[in-house]
Computed example of a mutant assay.
Amino acid sequence: MQLRALMYFDELVRTSSMRAAAENLNVAPTAVSRQIENLEHYFGTTLVERSNRGIRLTAAGELLAARAGRTLRELEHVHQLIDDLQGLQRGKVTIYANGATVANLLAPVLAQFSLRYPKLRFEVAITSARQAIEALASAEADLVVTLFAQKMAGVKVRLRSEITYELITWGNHPAAGRPEITLKEIATLPLALPDKTFGARQAFEEQFAKLGIELDPVFVTGSLEMLKELVLREAAVTLLPALTVQREVDLGLLAAIPISAGKGVRTAIDLCVAPDRQLSYAAGKLVDFIEAFMHGAEHAKTGSRSKKPV
């Protein structure tokens, strides 16, 4: 059986269309059809049923489809490991992350890492935590970064770091220069918060409820960029990890104010890998780089707070 035939079949399964598969593979539809026929001859059974409505996998086709994708990705992983013999001269790392907050935490890390290793390529998918873990199990992802995720079987937590949500205001907000702020004070401000499907929002609700405070945000959105934009336009304040807006804070456009008395929402951010699959050299280096970045950021934050006036 030729590897090409398996690749064509995998693309057909992904697109559910001979024409679409052919376009993605940059070949004629007849070439895709021919390779499928080769597979059917090899296995001695029909894999694909064709009709005017498109294609439908037979039971045998479904069985092959469930394994073909993983097989191809494992072969790609082996190819990556062979490339590793040449060091970080080429390679690709696929990362799945859940939530826009995680994406914004990853962005500065990947930017710095890419500048150091410009020949590497990266693919970042933003999904739910469950989809991210499933991608890791099916070998679609090299690394997974999760926030507010439940423990799941089949993953190994390679790195765990804690992040804290702080009050984010515009740069010249009256509270911007304060060393800390209370939850009661925050509740009186015009708030922009993520919707209740977000783990962070649920954690906020729980924290405020302990003080008998019911949150009544002015703005509710599932977009991190919208939250930032509303604060930049001085329409509201929000609660986010300072790292996600560090660039704006450094420019003086935004300010991050810690919540007093240890009442800020703190959560673990986990970097996960597959326990039974060796990381490529590039992926392993990225894990080390993320760890150093997170530890450095935490150290810098702790150091800056130790300098606060008493």
Rank of each mutant, 00 (worst) to 15 (best):
residue 204 F to A: 05
residue 219 F to I: 10
residue 307 K to M: 14
residue 258 P to Q: 06
residue 293 F to P: 03
residue 305 R to K: 13
residue 215 L to M: 10
residue 253 L to G: 04
residue 274 A to E: 04
residue 225 E to K: 09
residue 288 D to Q: 11
residue 306 S to G: 02
residue 247 R to F: 09
residue 254 L to G: 02
residue 288 D to V: 08
residue 230 L to M: 09
residue 296 G to P: 08
residue 216 D to W: 01
residue 280 S to L: 12
residue 281 Y to D: 12
residue 250 D to A: 03
residue 267 T to N: 07
residue 278 Q to I: 10
residue 285 K to I: 14
residue 270 D to K: 07
residue 223 S to H: 06
residue 241 P to C: 01
residue 265 V to D: 05
residue 227 L to Q: 01
residue 297 A to S: 10
residue 268 A to P: 11
residue 257 I to W: 10
residue 228 K to S: 13
residue 208 F to R: 12
residue 281 Y to G: 11
residue 223 S to G: 06
residue 258 P to L: 10
residue 202 Q to E: 02
residue 283 A to R: 02
residue 257 I to Y: 04
residue 289 F to R: 04
residue 241 P to T: 03
residue 266 R to A: 05
residue 205 E to M: 03
residue 270 D to P: 00
residue 239 L to I: 14
residue 248 E to Q: 02
residue 219 F to Q: 02
residue 222 G to Q: 14
residue 261 A to P: 10
residue 287 V to H: 06
residue 207 Q to D: 13
residue 289 F to H: 11
residue 280 S to W: 01
residue 205 E to H: 02
residue 221 T to N: 13
residue 265 V to C: 07
residue 283 A to T: 05
residue 255 A to E: 01
residue 252 G to R: 00
residue 272 C to P: 08
residue 258 P to D: 12
residue 234 E to Q: 09
residue 238 T to H: 10
residue 307 K to D: 13
residue 241 P to V: 10
residue 260 S to V: 01
residue 241 P to H: 01
residue 242 A to N: 03
residue 250 D to V: 06
residue 231 V to R: 01
residue 252 G to Q: 04
residue 225 E to Q: 15
residue 279 L to N: 03
residue 228 K to T: 12
residue 297 A to V: 15
residue 277 R to N: 09
residue 263 K to Q: 15
residue 292 A to F: 07
residue 214 E to Q: 07
residue 229 E to W: 11
residue 259 I to F: 11
residue 240 L to F: 08
residue 308 K to T: 14
residue 215 L to D: 01
residue 262 G to L: 02
residue 220 V to Q: 13
residue 263 K to T: 08
residue 305 R to F: 07
residue 230 L to D: 04
residue 301 K to G: 10
residue 213 I to V: 06
residue 224 L to G: 12
residue 274 A to H: 02
residue 263 K to D: 15
residue 262 G to C: 05
residue 269 I to G: 09
residue 265 V to I: 15
residue 254 L to D: 05
residue 254 L to Q: 04
residue 222 G to L: 11
residue 242 A to E: 15
residue 302 T to R: 12
residue 239 L to R: 00
residue 268 A to E: 14
residue 248 E to K: 03
residue 262 G to F: 11
residue 228 K to N: 12
residue 273 V to N: 01
residue 273 V to Q: 00
residue 240 L to I: 07
residue 293 F to M: 04
residue 223 S to Q: 06
residue 233 R to H: 11
residue 254 L to R: 03
residue 300 A to D: 14
residue 205 E to P: 00
residue 211 L to M: 12
residue 262 G to M: 04
residue 207 Q to C: 05
residue 292 A to Y: 02
residue 249 V to I: 06
residue 210 K to I: 07
residue 249 V to Q: 05
residue 266 R to M: 11
residue 215 L to K: 03
